[in-house]
């Protein structure tokens, strides 16, 4: 177990660095979109501030909402640490989910709304949403959609 310790620490460090990079990149792109778009309402860059949250609780219970989101992120972080420690998933998966959700939480905490700017069809999202989505998709694809690892060795098949 002790021989795996340095490897686990390196994976954890890299995951923390990736999560921090997601937060920085998301905040930078939100700022850039605000500055570059000039308040336009058409095209791929449409900066909007979106206060909405689950169950329509946004306006009345913002502190509660922020607390709930922080608790959710902490839960994902705890599961992420356990999952990477058991080699169940690569470290970049929880890093993307945690980084993306933290950045949106930061928006809610500081501005009272999430800044969205990327118009895709009728949706307006941001880089943090894409990071969370990529983490969820990565978790499913690398772990759950993977074919079974046990393949029969040629010439050693069991015939009954």
């Amino acid at each position: 177990v002790t021989t795996h310790q340095p490897i686990r620490q390196a994976v954890r460090r890299r995951s923390i660095a990736l999560a921090a990079s997601v937060v920085l990149a998301d905040q930078a792109t939100k700022l850039a979109a605000d500055l570059l778009s000039g308040g336009q309402r058409h095209g791929p860059l449409v900066p909007v501030r979106n206060p909405r949250f689950s169950l329509g609780l946004a306006a009345t219970t913002r502190p509660l909402m922020v607390l709930a989101m922080a608790a959710g992120i902490a839960l994902v972080a705890a599961h992420g640490v356990r999952a990477t420690g058991r080699n169940a998933v690569p470290g970049w998966i929880p890093a993307l989910v945690i980084g993306g959700s933290l950045s949106n939480l930061l928006d809610r905490l500081l501005l009272g709304a999430v800044r969205d700017f990327l118009a895709i069809g009728h949706l307006v999202i941001n880089l943090a949403d894409l990071a969370v989505l990529a983490g969820v998709a990565g978790c499913y694809l690398t772990r759950l959609a993977r074919p079974p690892a046990t393949t029969p060795i040629p010439g050693r098949e069991v015939h009954q």
Partner: peptide, 30 residues
């Protein structure tokens, strides 16, 4: 047993991540 624990941990992580995605992004997108 180890494989089962790994799978269970991954499923828990996926469920938590999905919950975060739905709670955080869903209401803003739809």
């Amino acid at each position: 047993m180890t494989k089962l624990r790994q799978l269970a941990t991954a499923v828990m992580l996926l469920a938590g991540s999905l919950a975060v995605l739905v709670a955080e992004t869903g209401p803003r997108a739809f």
